[in-house]
Nucleic acid binder design. Structure first.
Length: 281
DNA sequence: TTTCCTGTTAGTGT
DNA sequence: AACACTAACAGGAA
């Protein structure tokens, strides 16, 4: 699932691959994914040159040469895969290529999405700041300016929230999803159901360190190919062997040897080690 | 065969 | 306001 490390991997790859290229054509196989009229979408996108590839939270931002920005969210199963002229995707994947961007040099970018929850929308570049302000997204956790003091202040706003849900809420901190929230809490030794107001100072500190450490390491290994994720080159990420709890229900804890457990929190699954992450300390 | 479950988030309901 | 729940979807597992 594309969370911050996966989306950022795609961003940095696309930056090298398509910045400077002009879009000459776009195929839209699934109009539902385009959050504006197709006519308008085509009119704005076709003929534009890509000037930059940015990211905010889990959203990719293609800066176009005509004053517009294209926002792409991959949601659960989206992929953005680049292919040089003449190269195609595997046949079995082709039926999920809902949008295809053609560039002047014959290369293409495939927006592939099995579950079809992803979207693309257009925002005028000078209104981007307003747009993100309205979304109320929390800070980017890997930026140097996101400090322990910031984290503590944000925690204080939601004293009653459960820490697992807090970490996944994009309005608190942006970019963390189900996989990395589980991994961060295992690192911190904090049970996913712990209430924020009841966290000890040491646990708060360790959770903050976990955010920085886990996301940085996952990014270094180009993310986790749980399920369907592939990067912009169509390759899997390499972080899965490093996952300590996510997707490991019933398997041995890598720290204490006990069995990893799973429970539901707000409709989501949380994976944790019941002896390394206690409910009460 | 059918039902359940998985991921993210916008939207609705309490 | 702040929280909880669900729909949107396809496909793999039970």
């Amino acid at each position: 699932m594309p969370e911050l490390p996966e989306v950022e991997t795609i961003r940095s790859q696309l930056e090298k691959l398509i910045v400077g290229k002009k879009i000459t054509k776009v195929d839209v196989g699934l109009p539902r994914m385009v959050k504006l009229s197709l006519d308008k979408f085509r009119k704005i996108v076709v003929g534009a040159k890509i000037e930059s590839i940015g990211r905010r939270a889990k959203i990719l931002i293609f800066g176009l040469s005509n004053g517009w920005s294209m926002l792409i969210h991959l949601k659960l199963s989206g992929r953005l895969i680049f292919r040089k002229k003449g190269e195609i995707l595997k046949d079995e994947d082709a039926k999920w290529n809902h949008l295809i961007y053609y560039f002047q040099d014959g290369s293409r970018l495939f927006h592939n999405d099995l579950r079809q929850f992803g979207y693309v929308k257009l925002i005028e570049t000078d209104k981007l700041a307003d747009f993100f302000k309205k979304e109320k997204l929390g800070p980017e956790p890997l930026k140097k300016y996101f400090t322990f003091e910031d984290f503590s202040a944000i925690l204080k706003r939601k004293p009653k929230a459960k820490i697992k849900q807090f970490l996944m809420d994009q309005q608190n901190i942006s970019g963390i999803g189900n996989i990395y929230s589980d991994e961060i809490l295992f690192f911190a030794g904090v049970h996913p159901l712990r209430k924020i107001s009841e966290l000890k100072p040491k646990e708060t500190k360790k959770t903050f360190q976990g955010i920085k450490k886990i996301l940085t390491e996952a990014l270094k290994l180009q993310g986790s190919s749980v399920d369907l994720y592939l990067n912009a080159l169509g390759k899997e990420g390499e972080y899965v062997p490093r996952l300590k709890v996510y997707g490991r229900e019933g398997e041995k804890c890598k720290k204490c040897g006990g069995a990893i457990q799973r429970l539901k929190i707000g409709g989501r699954s949380a994976h944790y080690c019941p002896s390394c992450q206690k409910v009460l300390n």
